[in-house]
Design a protein around this nucleic acid. Structure first.
Lengths: 217, 217
DNA sequence: ATGTTAGTCTAACAATCATTAGACTGTTAT
DNA sequence: ATAACAGTCTAATGATTGTTAGACTAACAT
């Protein structure tokens, strides 16, 4: 009888290792970033506004749970998610959180007060429109993230370059901007800028993780 | 710039509340139990081999994350999972853990050394066989869990009653026993007993949560 | 060789969490 | 009324974490 207790405790303890990896806000943010593509420690530290030391410590936890893998390249250490299941898990825990926690839904609604928020629509029809060139799907993340993975028929134009590259965008097409996902504000800022310039722009609050597109390499 | 940092921190913090609920082995075990159907605090405490006080404290955490709900019934407090999404999450985190953690896979293989472990097979064909009565799908969990939710065409025969009710089982049919899921040992014990009695019995290491069947009420 | 960059490791402190004990609150039974 | 039951709440403990600082290492540049 106590035998099976020991076995059980062992099993649940292992599953809890994944929970432990997911119980810190910063670690979740790191996972989301890594879903966009591989990154070095200080890229991750800068994006999450924490010290490299702290980033390193959090990444160690994620590695202990085998959710991320590393590779040394020159003097950099490159982190990436272990596989697509990790990205799926990030989407799953986020969607459970949004389902259960009113506070989170409220905060997201606050964000959506900005003009140009897009109602989540059918992905297939968006892809068709993008394929025919009837809308421009604009990826405003840094270029290396676009290279690692992007939505079908998307064009890369990182937020920092947007202002100076406006001439490349046709003024008569609807522009659908997206970034890292619903918690990332780059697409929102891009839409603000585009609308001020007279473009018909909307934000798609999804990214490659939500579309189930895994980064290459 | 710092404005969006604050917003982001808030969002990830909310998601981390779900992670925190899932970072303790005992809380995961409680979630799994509640996936079988509603239960009182001391039922949960007994099943998980912890004190009622500790169970109460863990359940408070789960309630803070809105993963469970309570209802007072007489002098008992009844806990149940908030909705089916919670059960889906339990299956998701477990499957990520099994994918990523060799230690967990090894422990599960140890368990499967027992005779009568069934290879995970097509659910539809199992249901068809059960419907035609060509196999007996046997639910060996306590009766109230069977009532809350069970696999299609399953028969209830709780493990404790199994020995005394053997006469009810046809000796010429294959018996597929299941319980609360892969981490529960009741079906394994049932299969051991049935095989000793000469039955052709196998264990299906799945339960209602894995089949996406939510408990009623 | 020396310094710089990019990162890890260890130790330490503070903060949080798990667990238990003890007092407390309703509810039912007598 | 009183006792028993089922559970919560508070406070206290020890154990784990989060976070930072300082020493360290490996790769590259000069």
């Amino acid at each position: 009888m106590n035998e099976s207790r020991r076995i059980k405790d062992l099993l649940y303890e292992q599953v809890a290792r994944i929970g432990k990896a997911a119980c810190s806000p910063k670690r979740l943010e790191l996972i989301e970033l890594l879903c966009q593509g591989e990154k070095t420690v200080d890229m991750l530290a800068r994006e999450t506004s924490i010290s490299m030391k702290l980033a390193s410590a959090h990444l160690r936890e994620l590695r202990a749970a085998r959710l991320v893998e590393t590779e040394k390249q020159g003097k950099n250490v490159i982190y990436r998610i272990a596989n697509r299941g990790v990205a799926d898990f990030w989407v799953a825990i986020r969607s459970l959180a949004e389902d259960r926690l009113v506070e989170l839904r409220l905060a997201l609604e606050q964000m959506a007060i900005h003009p140009g928020e897009m109602a989540p629509q059918d992905r297939n029809s968006l892809v068709k429109l993008a394929k025919k060139g009837e809308v421009i799907v604009l990826d405003v993340r840094p270029a290396n993230e676009f290279e690692a993975a992007h939505l079908p028929f998307a064009r890369s134009m990182p937020l920092e370059e947007l202002k100076s590259r406006l001439a490349e965008l046709p003024a008569d097409k609807t522009i659908v901007a997206y970034c890292r996902g619903p918690y990332c504000l780059m697409a929102r800022d891009a839409v603000d800028l585009l609308r001020k310039q007279g473009y018909d722009a909307v934000r798609l609050p999804e990214g490659v993780a939500e579309w189930g597109i895994a980064p290459v390499r």
